Computed example of a mutant assay.
Amino acid sequence: MRRKIYITIGILVLVILSILGYVVVNQLSHLGNTTGGRAPDYPYFITNEPTTVKKIVVPKGTKLTYEEHFFKEGQQTKILNEKKLTGIELPEGRTIDWGGVPVFMIIKFYNPEMQGYSVHPDFNQLKNNKKNRFSQLWQNCNNDLGVLIKNVDDWTFNIKNIRDINDCGVNYQRYFNEDKEQQEFLNEFYKELKKVK
């Protein structure tokens, strides 16, 4: 009888030590992180050939990032469900044409109540013959452009799908609807966007 009690106590001590060990290691992994937590290792896939995602043809080497997934993290061996896509990042030095402007990254809005994404330009690759009023306005705010869309499965420059310009960096945002200057700039910007062919 005594032997069973000692074995049970021994097993309980091992379980408690294992749990404590896990907690200590887990907390040590958070050291140095200002938020106190560890950032999720979002699943991503690097394309090994030209691929179409969100109706955009992206080159080989493009990083496709997806929503946090319980069973998948880090680099994946195959492309995941496009519905879960949160970002497209082209290989360094590569761009795609988005309304006549070279862009290297498109990131879905974090807020699920907002249907849209941010487009990140590379104005160093903008050719003079491609410049227009739309690209000039974008270059003036010199930041990523937030657009609201109707169809979340289309991230192309599709005027019929783009509902509005939500923001251009932090200086121009629809959120500040009482700021007349910001709203006028965004209205003008959207008007010029609709003229792009």
Rank of each mutant, 00 (worst) to 15 (best):
N124S: 15
T47E: 03
P43Y: 06
K60I: 11
L28A: 12
G87K: 08
P43A: 09
M114V: 14
E184W: 02
I88W: 02
D154M: 06
E49D: 11
E113F: 09
G36D: 06
N111F: 01
F176M: 07
T62S: 10
D122Q: 12
F104V: 01
K72W: 09
G93H: 09
S29D: 11
M1V: 12
L186V: 02
I9C: 06
I16L: 11
F70A: 13
V103S: 01
G21T: 08
T86R: 12
L28T: 11
F134N: 00
N111E: 13
K55E: 11
Q125E: 06
E184A: 11
V58A: 03
F109C: 04
N158E: 09
V25C: 01
Q125T: 04
I56S: 03
F123N: 09
I149K: 02
F157W: 09
M114F: 12
E181M: 04
R3I: 12
N151S: 07
K4T: 11
L14H: 05
P59A: 05
N48T: 15
V103E: 00
P91N: 06
V53Y: 05
F104H: 12
I106W: 00
Q115H: 13
M105D: 05
G37M: 08
L64E: 02
K127M: 09
G36Y: 01
P40E: 14
D167I: 02
N171G: 12
T95N: 10
K55R: 15
E192M: 04
Y175H: 08
N124P: 00
E92Q: 12
W98K: 00
Q125V: 02
N143G: 13
F176D: 13
L145D: 00
V152Q: 15
N151G: 04
Q136H: 10
L64C: 06
A39Q: 13
Y190P: 00
P43V: 09
F71I: 11
I106L: 14
E49I: 10
I96V: 14
